[in-house]
């Protein structure tokens, strides 16, 4: 083969076989990741307060705004796209909920998005470890507002069976505010559907006058 020699962006000498090069050059990346995990572990000590929604008084008075609200909230609640990110056991119940028997499509939620940019809902399905907390917080930050979070299962809610473990986050609310908690280990798909309906109820109560939807 003729042409210019290969240039490795990671500093392997030009022309050298790049095979096997990866594991020798990624230690710095691992260290950087470890630093960010340790930083998150030392800073996220207290849980975020739950974003409880209070219905403002002027909602009843303002007829025009409330009908706009109604339309907006109806549109929002009918097309909540979840992010396709399963962490552990609960992800299989989440998949089951999306499959033929439980049929998440009834709620306009069958489009599980692989990209956080296109997702409205983050279902934290399973045990969250500190190592995973950093990417998960990044996913949450990448989601466009309004965004909602469902904590599915006791592991995500409080650490569950792994509460005392050295590597498990004791509740995803240490990492991000959570709108709906679904108990169970793992919750049945019906329980997840009930949690989703609770979220729909919540979305229905937002108002342009009051608290903006899905903000921290």
């Amino acid at each position: 083969m003729t042409g210019p020699k290969l240039i490795d962006p990671y500093g392997t000498p030009a022309g050298a076989d790049p095979r096997g090069a990866l594991q020798s050059i990624t230690l710095d990346l691992d260290r950087t990741e470890g630093e960010s995990v340790n930083k998150m572990k030392s800073t996220h000590l207290e849980p975020f307060p739950d974003p409880v929604l209070e219905v403002p008084d002027d909602l009843k008075r303002s007829v025009i705004v409330s009908s706009v609200d109604y339309l907006l909230n109806w549109a929002r609640k009918s097309s909540v796209f979840p992010l396709q990110s399963g962490l552990a056991c609960c992800s299989f119940e989440m998949i089951s909920a999306a499959m033929a028997r439980f049929d998440l499509a009834r709620f306009g939620m069958e489009a599980m998005r692989a990209s956080p940019r296109q997702a409205d809902l983050l279902i934290v399905a399973g045990t969250l470890t500190w190592k995973m907390a950093v990417p998960l917080r990044r996913l949450y930050d990448q989601m466009a507002e309004p965004r909602w979070v469902i904590s599915m299962g006791v592991c995500a809610t409080s650490g569950g069976p792994y509460y005392q473990s050295y590597s498990v986050v004791p509740g995803v609310n240490h990492i991000m505010p959570v709108d709906v908690y679904v108990p169970g280990c793992p919750p049945r798909p019906d329980a997840l559907l009930y949690g989703i309906m609770q979220l729909h109820d919540k979305i229905r109560r937002y108002s342009l006058n009051g608290q903006a939807a899905g903000r921290e």
């Binding site: 790049p18 962490l87 045990t127």
Partner: peptide, 28 residues
């Protein structure tokens, strides 16, 4: 699940892979 790989590829050909584990290490 939560598996991670670093993949180095040249065109369409994979030249190196490094799996990264531990995103679900729960200390059982």
């Amino acid at each position: 699940g939560v598996f991670r790989m670093r993949v180095m590829f040249d065109g369409e050909e994979i030249v190196d892979v490094e799996p990264v584990f531990g995103y679900l290490h729960r200390g059982s």
